[in-house]
Simulated assay, not measured.
Amino acid sequence: MLNKFFKRTKYITVSQKSLRDASEDSEVKPYIPNGMWVKCSKCKRVLYKSDVDRNNKVCQYCGHHFRMSAKERIKLIMDADSFEEFDVNMESANPIGFDGYEKKLKNMIEKSGIKEAVITGKGTIGKMKAVACFMDSNFMMGSMGSVVGEKITRAVEKAIELKLPLIIFTTSGGARMQEGIFSLMQMAKISAALNRLRNEGLLYVTVLTDPTTGGVTASFAMLGDIILAEPDALVGFAGKRVIEQTIRQKLPEGFQSAEFLLEHGFIDSIVSRNDLKSTLKKILVIHDRNR
């Protein structure tokens, strides 16, 4: 019966001989190409990857938001052909001589297809101009090193120069340990630049995606004039176990979820990914200085 099921499925390529062999030998299994299916971590359903991709990487059954790359998010949020990237060729060095760091960076570049854990630039969202930064967890878990900090700081300064609103999509495991104190300095550097943006009266919006943790949460992620988050996004500073061991108290279930933060006033709204572009457009229209 199982063999007949796979025979009818147009995505499975199994020869008639293989099917006959499978019926005679229970250990022979139909061929299923890699990457065709994904499992939802929330509802545990097995889904066609193509269906998930068509729905902007949102589970059609339970609404779980799978993680997106920076390039996928740019395609989703920015108007077609409107995005102009800043600092395209900027790459990390090894400021403290951390052993094996250069090799790891090279592997990450080859694997992820990007040169650092953030892509910055300007473009339009529903024809509204903005400077935008897109962090990517596929590159060393979106960790914030010198280049990430520098690219975001330059994007803030560009927003000031062009008198444009700034939007940052955050996802990060925190500061990058391979750069030591240089990574921690980026928290203050970006925060200082954002203060200059604020003094200019320009809008700053953050969109917290899964996961946003560590030094990113402790700095620019929570400094937005408007703070949005995707459903079920993990947002926090230290891990649950570390906090419990430090304060010697049991923490409530889901205390680092976007829903918990919304309930306790840390963020302004939770927005489904499929509604995110239209929501951002409305925010930009309302705060348009040229109206």
Score class of each variant (00 low, 15 high):
residue 1 M to I: 09
residue 1 M to F: 14
residue 3 N to H: 11
residue 6 F to C: 08
residue 7 K to D: 07
residue 7 K to C: 08
residue 8 R to M: 10
residue 9 T to H: 09
residue 11 Y to A: 12
residue 12 I to D: 06
residue 12 I to H: 06
residue 14 V to F: 04
residue 15 S to H: 04
residue 18 S to M: 13
residue 19 L to D: 03
residue 20 R to Y: 11
residue 22 A to W: 06
residue 25 D to N: 14
residue 29 K to H: 12
residue 34 N to K: 10
residue 37 W to Y: 15
residue 38 V to A: 07
residue 43 C to Q: 12
residue 45 R to I: 03
residue 45 R to P: 09
residue 46 V to N: 12
residue 48 Y to D: 15
residue 48 Y to G: 10
residue 50 S to L: 09
residue 50 S to T: 14
residue 51 D to Y: 08
residue 57 K to H: 13
residue 58 V to D: 01
residue 59 C to G: 08
residue 62 C to G: 07
residue 63 G to D: 03
residue 64 H to I: 01
residue 68 M to I: 08
residue 69 S to F: 15
residue 77 I to C: 03
residue 80 A to E: 15
residue 82 S to A: 06
residue 84 E to G: 02
residue 87 D to L: 09
residue 92 S to H: 11
residue 93 A to L: 10
residue 93 A to S: 11
residue 93 A to E: 14
residue 109 I to T: 08
residue 114 I to Q: 06
residue 114 I to A: 05
residue 114 I to H: 05
residue 115 K to G: 04
residue 116 E to M: 09
residue 117 A to N: 01
residue 119 I to Y: 03
residue 120 T to N: 05
residue 124 T to H: 06
residue 125 I to Q: 01
residue 125 I to Y: 03
residue 132 A to R: 00
residue 135 M to A: 12
residue 144 M to C: 14
residue 146 S to P: 11
residue 148 V to Q: 05
residue 153 T to A: 05
residue 154 R to W: 00
residue 156 V to Q: 02
residue 157 E to L: 07
residue 157 E to K: 13
residue 160 I to C: 11
residue 161 E to D: 12
residue 162 L to C: 07
residue 164 L to F: 09
residue 164 L to N: 05
residue 165 P to A: 11
residue 171 T to I: 09
residue 173 G to D: 06
residue 180 G to L: 01
residue 180 G to C: 00
residue 181 I to V: 09
residue 183 S to Y: 02
residue 185 M to A: 05
residue 186 Q to E: 09
residue 190 I to R: 00
residue 194 L to R: 03
residue 196 R to I: 06
residue 201 G to K: 13
residue 203 L to H: 01
residue 204 Y to E: 12
residue 204 Y to F: 15
residue 206 T to D: 03
residue 208 L to M: 10
residue 208 L to D: 05
residue 209 T to W: 05
residue 210 D to Y: 04
residue 214 G to N: 07
residue 215 G to Q: 10
residue 219 S to I: 07
residue 219 S to F: 08
residue 235 V to H: 02
residue 236 G to R: 06
residue 238 A to H: 13
residue 238 A to Y: 15
residue 240 K to R: 07
residue 241 R to F: 07
residue 244 E to F: 04
residue 253 E to Q: 08
residue 259 E to P: 01
residue 263 E to S: 09
residue 263 E to N: 10
residue 264 H to F: 10
residue 265 G to I: 08
residue 266 F to E: 05
residue 268 D to Y: 02
residue 269 S to T: 04
residue 269 S to E: 15
residue 271 V to R: 11
residue 271 V to L: 08
residue 272 S to N: 11
residue 274 N to Q: 10
residue 279 T to C: 11
residue 279 T to M: 12
residue 281 K to Q: 11
residue 289 R to S: 12
